[in-house]
């Protein structure tokens, strides 16, 4: 067992974890934060997406002990002072989900994706072009690590587009 201190959604937790415990299991099973979902536990679906220092990661592929000194944000930490994050509101308005199981991951992923884009990070769609315009094709490409078997992709795109376009 290793005792680690982890800052999650602004709160510091100290917990004992074996070195093989994934960040996802630490959040879900030890801290009771079940917002991040486990769809595959293999890095293939994106349901477990959380933010580590603002960067999106698959929590199922991360070891908890590696993230001891990072600021973790889960879906539970996106709303501020009782007010939903604009991406959360847009998902409701544009019906960006059905069963809801991929939704936490989609929303965390979208929040970080918009930040990546704002920071000038390229994608395969824009190639090396800096500051590519955030077209529908860009959004789709950059969100393709998050599967939605309910097929809510059109609604998700509309939600992200609305937040991205002031």
């Amino acid at each position: 067992m290793t005792e680690i201190r982890m800052r999650v959604n602004g709160v510091v937790h100290s917990l004992d974890v074996e070195p093989w415990v994934s960040l996802l299991d630490a959040l879900r099973e030890r801290l009771g934060l079940t917002g991040p979902k486990k769809g595959c536990d293999q890095g293939a679906c994106g349901a477990c997406t959380v933010l580590a220092d603002g960067v999106r990661i698959n929590a199922c592929l991360a070891l908890a002990v590696q993230y001891a000194d990072k600021e973790i944000t889960t879906i539970e930490g996106l709303a501020q002072g009782g007010e939903l994050h604009p991406v959360q509101q847009a998902f409701i308005r544009h019906d960006g989900f059905q069963c809801g199981y991929c939704t936490s991951g989609q929303i965390c992923s979208a929040v970080a994706m918009l930040a990546e884009h704002a920071a000038g990070m390229p994608s395969v769609v824009s190639g090396s072009a800096a500051r590519a315009e955030l077209t529908d094709a860009e959004i789709r490409e950059r969100m393709s690590g998050n599967l939605c078997r309910c097929g809510a992709y059109n609604g998700i795109l509309d939600a992200i587009r609305e937040v991205a376009t002031p």
Partner: peptide, 21 residues
């Protein structure tokens, strides 16, 4: 009409079968 369970699903509050302590 917006889904009644929308807020629970976009905030991670909705608890699925494996999420009951």
């Amino acid at each position: 009409v917006d889904r009644l369970d929308g807020p629970a699903k976009v905030t991670g509050a909705a608890r699925y079968a494996a999420e009951h302590p």
